[in-house]
């Protein structure tokens, strides 16, 4: 398959990239890992006259620990995020997402920014980004904005990024003590698969009162975008972290929060049932981890 002809731009700084994006706007696509965009270009699903590659901008592939948060550059690859000690220790659900995306070859190229901008409802890192309350950092020439991840996705393949903007990375608050998280993705096979359902859960409990004081549950592949399970979260908040309350929350996620469709990967009914199973399992493991934290 031949790639169509395009002009290739390889800026060395964010400023240079923003200038290009300002000048070229909708006539340019941002190239990060290329594991989706190059395929879409080959299949003629996407057309563009210009590619702006971000891979030579070192600042965009950094993972840095700040006081209360970490910064993950948009061009950090899945393999790189998986290797990061701070991610392995404090962001286990994100590590699981990165460990499970595509296969070992794809993970060496695919980036977290690309996974977010591609905005697939089934994206492997997206439920984790949602439950860690990530903030997307967007820049355009001379302007910056921060978008809570819950407002980032606007539809399948669509996000709130404007034509002159570039996603530079994410800021994730460091989870507090007595909190834990877990991610499970369900597919037809383990490797090189698009998820049928993927769920991530986060919970924090008060060791004094033994009640859940914060919880975030995110569902993938069961709506037009990855979504937060608001009713399930409300059902669990203030409850004791135990099997009965995890089950009650999972039932809310299954019945009220998800809106799956039938497709060749699975039926809506199967997806809905699995939302219940995976919500309960991820909450139970998140709590085990919270106890150990």
């Amino acid at each position: 398959m031949l790639l169509p002809m395009f002009e290739f731009h390889e800026p060395l700084s964010i400023e240079e990239a923003l200038e290009l994006k300002k000048k070229l706007g909708q006539n340019a696509r941002i190239l990060a890992g290329g594991t989706d965009l190059l395929v879409h270009l080959k299949k003629k699903l996407v057309k563009t006259d210009n590619l702006i590659s971000l891979s030579r901008i070192k600042a965009l592939s950094l993972i840095t620990e700040q006081k209360d948060s970490i910064f993950i550059g948009a061009c950090a690859t899945m393999a790189q995020i998986s290797r990061s000690p701070v991610i392995a220790k404090k962001f286990t659900a994100l590590k699981s997402g990165c460990d499970n995306l595509g296969n070992h070859l794809i993970r060496n190229r695919a980036t977290i920014g690309g996974n977010a901008c591609n905005a697939s409802p089934a994206g492997d890192t997206l439920p984790a980004l949602l439950i860690y309350d990530s903030v997307a950092l967007l820049e355009s020439y001379g302007k910056k904005r921060e978008i809570p991840i819950a407002d980032f996705f606007t539809g399948p393949g669509k996000s709130c990024i404007q034509p002159d903007e570039i996603l530079t990375g994410f800021r994730l608050p460091i989870p507090t003590d007595h909190s834990g998280a877990h991610y499970i993705q369900l597919g037809k096979r383990k490797s090189s698969e698009i998820n049928v359902v993927n769920v991530a859960s986060f919970l924090e409990y008060d060791p004094g009162t033994k009640k859940v004081i914060t919880t975030r549950i995110a569902l993938g592949s069961v709506a037009a975008t990855p979504i937060r399970a608001a009713r399930a979260e409300a059902a669990l908040l203030g409850q004791a972290p135990e099997e009965a309350s995890f089950f009650a929350a999972a039932e809310m996620a299954r019945r009220e929060d998800c809106r799956p469709i039938d497709d060749f990967r699975g039926t809506a009914g199967y997806r809905q049932a699995m939302v219940g199973v995976l919500t309960k399992r991820t909450l139970a493991t998140a709590y085990e981890r919270a106890k150990g934290a």
């Binding site: 290329g34 594991t35 395929v39 595509g102 070859l105 794809i106 060496n108 190229r109 090189s192």
Partner: peptide, 21 residues
Amino acid sequence: GDCGACTVIMDGDVVNSCLVL
């Protein structure tokens, strides 16, 4: 990028060379 037949090692990591310009 589905089959891996084009796998090469690039700067110490394996990649699908069909998905690298």
